[in-house]
């Protein structure tokens, strides 16, 4: 199994940390992982993206042109990454702030109202965990228990009390992802 993912959105949406938690979850189940962020001037322009690869084999290139899954969280990223999904692949997006919805017919498109659900749960910061939940429902590449273990590893100890909230957010995402 090899899953090549791009997660893209605005800086501050938790794009990089969502990728990190996914990568940590992979490590928890003995897989190879890579996490390659955009770190250049484009990051300073407000958009952030990260390429995450989770695989049973040694990972070759940590940067890619095409992906099994694209998780898209703003319009700029939709413009840039819709076309990079491999035929037969998955595009998962949050319609919040999207004016031009994806149009491809050779991929499977899913929608998660992450921003709205996180706001309803009373904490917009767990937005990325709602999206992660949606992703894991569509692509169950890592087990939930390993995600929790990954969270414990990637969060400083003082935030461990927030793990149940994160778990709720993941569950919320899993329940509310919609195939289009």
């Amino acid at each position: 199994m090899t899953e090549e993912i791009i997660i893209a959105g605005f800086g501050g949406q938790g794009v990089l940390s969502m990728g990190k938690i996914l990568a940590y979850s992979g490590i928890m189940q003995d897989q190879e992982v890579s996490w390659m962020p955009s770190y250049g001037p484009e990051m300073r322009g407000g958009t952030a993206n990260v390429t995450v690869i989770v695989s049973d084999e040694r990972i070759s290139s940590p940067t890619l042109s095409f992906f099994d899954t694209a998780v898209i969280l703003n319009q700029q990223s939709m413009d840039k990454f819709e076309e990079t999904v491999k035929p037969g692949g998955v595009l998962l997006y949050d319609p919040n702030g999207i004016s031009k919805h994806p149009t491809r017919t050779d991929i499977t498109i899913y929608k998660i109202e992450g921003a709205r659900l996180a706001a309803e749960m009373g904490n917009t910061k767990i937005f990325n965990m709602v999206v992660l939940g949606a992703y894991l429902k569509v692509k169950p590449i890592v087990k939930l228990e390993n995600v929790i273990k990954g969270l414990k590893k990637s969060l400083p100890e003082r935030y461990h009390k927030l793990i149940p909230l994160n778990e709720d957010a993941i569950t919320m995402g899993m329940k509310n992802v919609v195939k289009i």
Partner: peptide, 10 residues
Amino acid sequence: DGLIGQMMEK
């Protein structure tokens, strides 16, 4: 290089 320096792996 910047790629190896900035990326995370196991």
